[in-house]
Amino acid sequence: MNNTLYINEFGVVCPLGLGKEQVAESLFSGQRTGLVSRSDLLVDGDVYVGEVQADLPSVSGFAKHFQTRNNQLALAAFEQISAKLTTLRSHIPANRIGVIVGTSTSGIAEGENAMQYQKLHGQFPENYHYQQQEMSNLAEFIAQVADVSGPYLTISTACSSSAKSFVTASEWIAAGIVDAVIVGGVDSLCQMTINGFSALESTSAGVCQPFSASRDGINIGEAGALAIVSKQPDGFQVWGGESSDAHHMSAPDPTGLGAVTSIRNALAAANISSTQIDYVNLHGTATVKNDLMESGAVAEVFGTDMPASSTKSLTGHCLGAAGALEAIFCCIALSQQQLPIHVWDAKPDDNIAQLNWVDSTNYQQTVNYCLSNSFAFGGNNVSLIIGKHNG
């Protein structure tokens, strides 16, 4: 069975900018200006986060429960794929187009603001609705905006959520449920996630340094990343592999077994060998344990000559949106035949596998296949392979 899907179009907004052109320019120049210090998110002190600074479209004309920053990010990404969706609608009925997206925050920030208002005034503000923070809100909103009537689903498996949307879309299409799916993920900054990661002692005191000897944790980020996938051979090829090692609620399996399994499952799905991969976009969170595990897993499958980088040093960790965002970075790398540089303090950790970090000497490459890793709490692992379609 041919399980190849195609990314027919994609839209993106993140700390690197709005739209594929602006994002590409910032990505390849290693811009870190989207990482900013905020004093209003952490209970005690300042924290660096990846913040979207672009002007976002208004959602004031939608129902109250759709009026969230999360949905503003979603709408900004959707507007970039709407023309392609209109073209697809000319031969695919609305009920044969589904929506599968990932998030971990939904409209939690609006709920946090509403709780503060309620403490001061004894009632919730007029613009608050409890459904703003439901996980299902994102998929329902995108289905309404897109005017499609196929099934819609929000996945919330932490940091693998939007990577998993590509795999689930492949399963839906293979099962004959739909013919095309809007996939991706959206996450917005909120106090709950930032204070939660801080409680786990996983947030960085400054700007994150993936795979560095001085790494001390992540910067949380926000983003919207959406794509249209179908069997129509137009755009970039995509395959996915999954695993679930269930080693620990929040810590990765130090042996890297789950990561290795998801990578090998992706290679099997694409029916290619490890030697055909030209670049690995690492999960690369800059936590001590994740980077130790992932570097070993990548070295086990690919050796240490594989060009690799973590783009979270540019965007922060965008949680439920990270997998789709980094898959889009791979699409951009394939289209421009250029790799994202590994931006860090260049202090190697002798305790981890030393990979072939992309820098100013090797960023221009012939790129046919990229692999992107997303590893989540509970050992929920997804690896996506993005291929250049030459048809």
Rank of each mutant, 00 (worst) to 15 (best):
282 L>K: 07
230 S>V: 03
75 L>C: 12
225 A>G: 06
245 D>P: 03
356 N>I: 04
360 S>L: 07
371 L>H: 09
373 N>H: 08
43 V>R: 07
381 N>Q: 05
297 A>Y: 11
122 G>K: 00
292 L>C: 14
275 T>S: 12
121 H>K: 01
213 A>R: 11
363 Y>S: 15
321 A>E: 09
279 Y>I: 06
245 D>T: 11
248 H>T: 10
355 L>C: 12
351 N>Y: 08
348 P>K: 01
266 A>L: 00
215 R>G: 12
153 L>P: 01
192 M>Y: 15
43 V>A: 15
219 N>E: 11
23 V>N: 01
130 Y>E: 08
324 A>Q: 12
13 V>H: 14
220 I>A: 02
247 H>L: 06
211 F>Y: 09
382 V>G: 11
314 L>M: 13
375 F>I: 07
238 V>M: 09
379 G>S: 05
9 E>K: 10
347 K>L: 02
343 V>Q: 02
28 F>Y: 08
184 G>K: 09
188 S>F: 10
246 A>T: 11
287 T>D: 02
14 C>D: 05
257 L>Q: 13
255 T>M: 02
107 G>R: 02
336 Q>I: 12
329 F>N: 04
34 G>K: 04
98 G>D: 07
22 Q>I: 00
47 V>Y: 11
71 N>Y: 10
12 V>Q: 08
151 P>E: 03
17 G>C: 03
187 D>I: 04
337 Q>S: 15
382 V>S: 10
101 V>R: 08
311 T>Q: 02
112 E>N: 06
42 L>R: 12
81 I>H: 10
142 I>R: 11
